[in-house]
Simulated assay, not measured.
Amino acid sequence: MKKILPMKYPEITSYSIQSNVLSIIANYEETLPWYHSHFVQLCCDKQSLMIGFTDWAHNDTIFVPRQHVDNSLIKIKWESNICEFLINSINLDFYNYFYIDEYYIPDSNAYQSYKFVHNVFVYGYDIEEEIFFIAGSLKDGKYMFTRCTFTELENAYQSVSPIEDLLGGVSMYKYKKISVDFDLNFVVNSIIEYLYSKNSFQYDKRLHIYKDQFIYGISVYQHLDDYLSRLLHGEDKKIDKRPFHALWDHKKCMLSRIKYMGTNNLLKNADRLFVKYQIIERETLYHRNSILKYSLTKNKDVVEKIRHGINRLVENEMTLLNCFLESITPL
């Protein structure tokens, strides 16, 4: 017996918790209006380099509501047999998200080398081959779809102690078909908040507690520039590609939004805007690749070039986004 739930490689791959959900909804055309209405505004924790979309609050979207099963129930009901639990869950069309020790997962850098507790997303199984189909940020931090054996996943699950398990069980996701319209006003407001670095959490009671914790919008580039300056002067030794990858995700999302809005007659001059924004997307990818190059060469000229390139990119993006706002066709 074999069952694999639908998964499609997502546009956003910065952080697996978000990529997992987007891998589900990317299979369904009815989710496109919602998707292109979101993922505009960026935020960054002041104490770290964690740049991401403010929409991280949508890890469980209206299309994929989340349920949770505590490890204590798995222990009682399934005698801690995670494989049996997962097979039962997948048979009911649930995707499963939980923490494992990647020491036991072949496509991880930690495989048979060191303990590394991280999350995994299980979306299918094959009983004859005794394998699970999994997704996550695995080898070199790259988000991927791969597989592991029943034994490997069982060992990986059992190796995580209660204090290491941030979920304390398994989060389960199941697709729910809902009709949602494109929210043009939300897009406009999000772009304005991005351009003027406004706090996008201030109106959301759930997230208001984070109002002073984050930097928003275009200001995240200044935070990134400060980090690059510390790298240049030897004040920071950690080379972190994640913020650069997150910025590339942002540009890819903007490109697909321009294309979507143009196709649906919501944006004048969409083709011209697409071509110009494509240049920004390619430059952002270049910066992402350059920081990887620096991690190998330690050539500080590379960092200096990234800093100059990002400063030009910010100016060009602000100009282009203002043109974008002027080109919007009212509903």
Rank of each mutant, 00 (worst) to 15 (best):
D249P: 10
D236L: 03
F116Y: 14
D301M: 02
E152K: 10
S200Y: 11
E283F: 02
T61P: 03
Q213I: 03
I76A: 14
I4M: 14
I134T: 09
F182I: 06
S108I: 05
K251G: 05
Y286V: 09
K238S: 11
I25F: 03
F98M: 07
K276Y: 05
K293M: 14
L231G: 09
S72P: 01
G262E: 05
L232K: 09
Q18H: 11
E315I: 12
V117L: 03
W34D: 11
N322I: 13
F244C: 08
V117W: 05
D249S: 11
Y227V: 00
N289L: 15
K205V: 09
N109E: 15
S137R: 08
H250R: 09
I127W: 00
H233G: 01
C44E: 04
G52S: 05
G136D: 08
P330A: 08
L32N: 11
I178S: 13
F85H: 07
V122E: 05
A246M: 07
Q202K: 15
T54F: 04
H36Q: 06
N189W: 01
W78K: 12
E84Y: 06
F324K: 10
D204I: 11
D225V: 08
I178G: 08
E128N: 13
K2E: 11
K75D: 14
G217T: 09
I178H: 14
P33I: 11
K46E: 10
L247K: 03
I134K: 10
C148Y: 08
K259D: 11
I62Y: 06
I291G: 14
N185F: 00
N189G: 11
K300C: 06
Q202T: 15
E102K: 10
G141E: 13
C253I: 04
L266G: 01
Y227W: 01
P65A: 02
N96V: 07
L285F: 10
K241Y: 09
Y143N: 08
F94M: 03
T284Y: 05
K176L: 10
K237P: 00
D140A: 15
I82C: 10
L207H: 06
T284W: 10
L195Y: 10
R230L: 07
E84D: 07
L292S: 12
I291K: 14
S23K: 11
C43N: 12
R312E: 02
I328L: 03
S19K: 07
R206S: 03
F98I: 02
M1F: 06
I24A: 02
N71T: 00
S14P: 00
